[in-house]
């Protein structure tokens, strides 16, 4: 009996990602959710600018590639004109929380019925390791060579916490992909974020604490350990909003 194989919605091609980059794991989890819900033929994905700019090569569903940070705006247009389709964005932290902050915040507060998969790897990967809004205090990047100093470069943004104050948000969960148990938890969260859209609940976001071994300057296994020891205390895992839970409490 096959207990694990490549999901159908994932294209059978090699990816351009660096060895051990967790973008690959999250791609697979998205494809597994699409398979599990049987929505491959109805799904439209929006790829960002960033290392995952080529995500359209890796999913078997239809894909669009948006200008930097504009994925939630593009997804809004796609969803409003095709309300029967399932629309998701896949975005890094530079894309979603720097140049695309306005699109992220406003799509959320409007309660667009879309799904956002947010990769928080605390750095700009594609462009060679510059500081991101999510870079940790003290973290060395090419644009914070002495470590990020909040007095100079400002404080990081906790995206799930920030968005959870907005009424249009249906669901926000922060997960990580550093261990098999956490990957399985992330899989459930991503599937829920898609199910919410099928159930017309509003905007769902899953923030995935991820690694960039190349620009962090670590081996892939060291990077997972660094994520656990440094990112998790600053970005606690958990559900930040779930409108279902609220209904239950009433």
């Amino acid at each position: 009996m096959v207990v694990f194989k490549k999901p159908q919605s994932l294209s059978p091609v090699p990816t351009h990602y660096c060895p051990g980059c967790t973008h690959g794991i999250v791609h697979r989890l998205v494809a597994e959710a699409i398979d599990a819900l049987g929505i491959e033929g109805q799904t439209i994905g929006v790829a960002p600018v960033g290392c995952s700019v080529f995500a359209y090569n890796y999913f078997e569903c239809d894909m669009i590639q948006a200008a930097h940070g504009r994925a939630p705006a593009v997804a809004t247009g796609v969803k409003r004109t095709n309300p029967d389709k399932i629309v998701f964005t896949y975005q890094g932290d530079g894309d979603l929380a720097a140049i695309g902050t306005a699109e992220t915040v406003h799509a959320t507060t409007r309660g667009e019925n879309i799904t956002i998969i947010f990769i928080n790897n605390a750095i700009y990967g594609m462009t060679g390791g510059q500081m991101a809004p999510t870079t940790l205090p003290g973290q060395v990047t090419t644009t914070s060579p002495y470590g990020r100093n909040p007095m100079i470069q400002g404080n990081p943004i906790r995206v799930c916490e920030m968005l959870s104050t907005l009424d249009g948000l249906a669901f926000a969960q922060r997960v990580a992909v550093d261990t098999p148990a956490h990957v399985n938890q992330a899989k459930k969260a991503i599937q829920k974020a898609f199910q919410n859209q099928i159930d017309k609940k509003g905007l769902s976001i899953v923030e995935v604490l991820s690694t960039c071994p190349t620009n962090w300057g670590m081996s892939p296994t060291e990077a997972l350990k660094w994520l656990r020891e440094n990112m998790m205390p600053y970005y606690p895992l958990g559900v930040y909003k779930d409108i279902d839970a609220k209904e239950e409490n009433k």
Binding site: M1, F4, K6, L10, P14, H23, G24, P180
Partner: peptide, 21 residues
Amino acid sequence: IACAMCATMCPDVVITVEKNV
């Protein structure tokens, strides 16, 4: 033991796991 933990962590979907039943 066909636990598939290896495949769960593989970013490149290299691994297929079959359990003997």
